[in-house]
Nucleic acid binder design. Structure first.
Lengths: 365, 365
DNA sequence: TGGTGCTGTGGAAACGTTTCCACCCTCATA
DNA sequence: TATGAGGGTGGAAACGTTTCCACAGCACCA
């Protein structure tokens, strides 16, 4: 625990018998130096175990080589994967990632952003509740700091790496309609704090309307409700007429199936379920999940690249939306033929397990 | 993009008509100041939108209020959750998290650590391939930097937030034995680069021996093999005598089931499977996964707390290992009664789906 | 011989803070 | 009326870098 004092470039210079300016030039290969001096300095640095202080450098160069990253939570694998990819990309370019999360809370978003800015970050990688109205985010822009959004639909002036949530949701509506579903539902988690969730619902509802289906039910639930199958089942039971449910993410779609089992409903015969995100486990399930497959890693990478462009003084241009895919799965089928008074609870058990079809359709760019 | 020059405390002092020392005292509430001056300074700071530069502060105080975090990958939800929890804990104490990942590569580990150290971090939160032999990690210790490990069994002098992998694995062996299994296997991912995986195998093998079972088969696979059910199936087919498989993590355990389906094997009748980690989806599956349940968030939190103690100059003491639970599930049962020549491929299909039992056993502290 | 142009070098300023120190006041006490 | 105490204040040093600038020495050319 003996806090040794830091070895500075002065120590190196002294040991090498030269001035700090010379030592700096040698160690940075940034200017002329005689072979002899060069050797002495390098030797001294090695002997002393010298390492530059990023703080000293940052102060003098006014760039910290550090990027601030704000996301709702790393516990959501979609964000975690995006951050992982962004981190790899930035590291390759010599930048470090300073991470903070808000737990989906708008005011925490702003607090955290303020702290990040005070840390002299060179750029910002952000997914937050309200990017368009955030004061600190706006301040960062004003200051000329490169800002790159992730997962958001592009906001005025702020480039965003994103998938077109609404367009993807429209495809889900069409899949339901194609199979003869009419009463659809959208199961939303964190509807108030996630513009992704809202965009998906909008697209879904719009396409339902375009296809002449009744307006889909919007079923908002809390995280607590999502985590408890019995409670979730009770919520779902309120919507017995719904034969096709679009869940705002894959975990929710999986949870729904457990809840359906509670109610004695068969998936997909009594209730078709489609998720969003395309997480890996979804395809390994007995009953592979029908879902919209996205690539969070590609998204993180794209956001990082856009940011890097900005950091190099280039124009930060909005990249095209990232591709997504509708992945067919055994949780989606035609609704059970049913009379007006059909009681779902009396449904017969299925004779054969659903075939684990796993093909892809509707590739989009 | 008009890079406005930074507002410094000098600007505030000038605007308030006082010296920088006074402005600093007012803004930090760190010394005396008349009510009038105080008001002028605060007003000026507000008007100018002043924010302290963490760099300037770090340079002068020789502490950056920043923690370096090194993990294999955020794409693994176990690490992501731990980091998320640690981040929350550290943020509450006024620290920021600088994150880097190594992709399970030992030499990247050391490179990254070196970079992190150069960033003047105040402490280190680490999961890496070889903590006990890492030169930069050792250097950090030498320098008196608090270091807190995550997921590792405690290494000489370095406290680690961990679960007892070997002890947990022993329980799995006992569960298998209790149900009459004799030929067991351990399916290992990244065996060479994960001491967790190795500890689990050791505990598992030791308990098998203690129970008089034959030594378990060690089945090492690559990530590529794990991701492809057909290939994984081919690997598993080599071990037809094995009736009970312990997978080194839950995702692998889920993948195994898909591979088993490929081979026409029934889980659990033909092959019992137990995982490790206790990820949430595991319990939502049709056939809930038997597994060792751990709490990565608690682990991350504990590591952060230990580190915080060190940062406050207190002794960093090794906390007790974190609790784990054996979670029973439908992927574990007695082996199918079979003669010496029984051909598993000819097995009849099961008549009833396994009951989704979900009780817990074997709580440990 | 005097200039010109290199190469190699080091002093010093600057970056934004905090804090030590010295100074000037004012007020109470002797 | 002197003395002391203490509150309020600002100058300046320090933290570890980089870079501007000046200068010394040397070789070359006219």
């Amino acid at each position: 625990m003996a806090q040794r004092p830091r070895i500075t470039i002065k120590d190196v210079a002294r040991a090498a018998g030269c001035g700090v300016a010379t030592a700096s030039r040698v160690l940075n290969k940034s200017g002329p130096a005689s072979a002899a001096t060069r050797a002495r300095v390098e030797q001294a640095a090695r002997d002393l175990g010298f390492a530059f202080s990023a703080t000293g450098r940052a102060l003098q160069s006014r760039r910290s080589r550090t990027i601030g990253c704000l996301i709702p939570s790393l516990a959501n694998p979609v964000f975690a994967e995006a951050v992982q990819a962004a981190q790899e990309e930035l590291r390759a370019a010599g930048y470090q990632l300073l991470i903070a999360s808000s737990n989906y809370d708008g005011s925490t978003d702003n607090e955290v952003l303020t702290t990040l800015l005070a840390q002299d970050v060179d750029g910002l990688l952000v997914t937050m509740v309200e990017p368009h109205t955030s004061a600190p985010l706006h301040a960062a822009r004003e200051r000329g700091l490169p800002v790159s959004l992730m997962f958001h639909d592009p906001v005025a002036g702020l480039p965003s790496a994103h998938v077109e949530n609404a367009a993807a949701a429209r495809i889900v509506a069409r899949q339901f309609a194609d199979r003869g579903h009419r009463r659809c539902g959208f199961l939303a988690l964190r509807f108030a704090t996630s513009d992704r969730s809202r965009s998906r619902f909008e697209g879904f509802a719009a396409e339902c309307a375009a296809l002449g289906l009744p307006a889909p039910e919007l079923i908002e639930i809390s995280e607590a409700e999502a985590a408890n199958p019995a409670i979730l089942a009770a919520r779902l039971a309120e919507y017995a007429a719904v034969t096709a449910l679009f869940a705002s993410n894959d975990f929710l779609a999986i949870a729904v199936q457990k809840a359906a089992r509670h109610l004695g409903w068969q998936v997909p015969q009594d209730l078709s379920v489609v998720g969003f995100d395309g997480i890996e486990v979804g395809r390994l399930l007995d009953r592979p999940l029908a879902t919209i497959e996205t690539a969070p890693a590609a998204l993180g990478r794209q956001a990082a690249r856009t940011l890097l462009a900005g950091l190099q003084g280039e124009e930060m241009r909005q990249a095209p939306p990232l591709p997504f895919t509708f992945r067919a799965g055994a949780t989606l089928s035609a609704p059970r033929a049913q009379g007006p008074d059909d009681d779902r609870v009396a449904a017969r058990p299925p004779s054969v397990p659903p075939s684990p079809s796993n093909d892809r359709q509707d590739r989009q760019g």
